[in-house]
Design a protein around this nucleic acid. Structure first.
Lengths: 116, 116
DNA sequence: ACATAGTACTACGTTTAGTATAGCATGGAT
DNA sequence: ATCCATGCTATACTAAACGTAGTACTATGT
């Protein structure tokens, strides 16, 4: 049954419950970044840059900053020699595994479908 | 030495299997459009516009066109009176339900967590 | 006949997001 | 001192999304 909304729709159009998530996921590179971090526990900036195949470093930088602010990615300065930075997923980020799994399934079924 | 790049790295960078899906999903409004169409079997242009809360009609138009080309959305001209257009999901689009379900779960767990 | 309203858009000009390319800062190694 | 690697930032450009307005069609009211 399609959700029919009576009279109060102007005031409170049924809020789309995925809107805040869509705001994060619906940005370029977010899903791919999470995908790679899920598979490798931690990665460096340049490593991500290589894997993502041609993302521009400004975009990657701001995307990682946003994901850190949202609590999805953790940034750690490693003071070893040579010092560097490692990015990994928080619990919140790791919990996106279900989303990634479903996206992968759908992608394999309908987009990369030739090898099903 | 960190990963030195011989000559064949272009050949064997593990391709990200969600890239084609991310290209579709990682565009503004796509997830919300699919969410609403999953819940209502078919919707009109203006109805989507209202529910999405302030999407610009050019963007909605091009997004629907893209989704139709990808095989996710079906567009039907209804020749009743008054004539209008109805948008609905194809089988490919309906199969995104698992993705939407996981996104909803994650969103409720971490973003809208206070309520529900 | 003419204006008004609903539906589904398109057109125009502006802002924001993302891009290509280059360069900077730090810390070894040579 | 010079070179390289890492992790970015800076600059200038293009593409995506935006707000607002308007068009084309049909129907309905005056």
């Amino acid at each position: 049954m399609p959700l029919s909304k009576p009279m109060q729709d102007a005031l409170e159009l049924p809020i789309c419950p995925i809107e805040p998530a869509a705001h994060i996921i619906g940005q370029k590179w977010t899903l791919q970044i999470v995908y790679f971090l899920l598979n490798s526990s931690s990665m460096r900036f340049c490593e991500l840059q290589d894997r993502l195949g041609g993302v521009n470093p400004s975009t990657l930088s701001s995307r990682l900053k946003m994901l850190e602010e949202e609590g999805i990615v953790r940034r750690e300065q490693i003071s070893a020699i040579p010092p560097h930075v490692e990015y990994s997923l928080t619990a919140m980020g790791r919990d996106l595994e279900g989303v990634i799994r479903e996206v992968t399934r759908w992608s394999n079924a309908w987009l990369c479908g030739s090898t099903k």
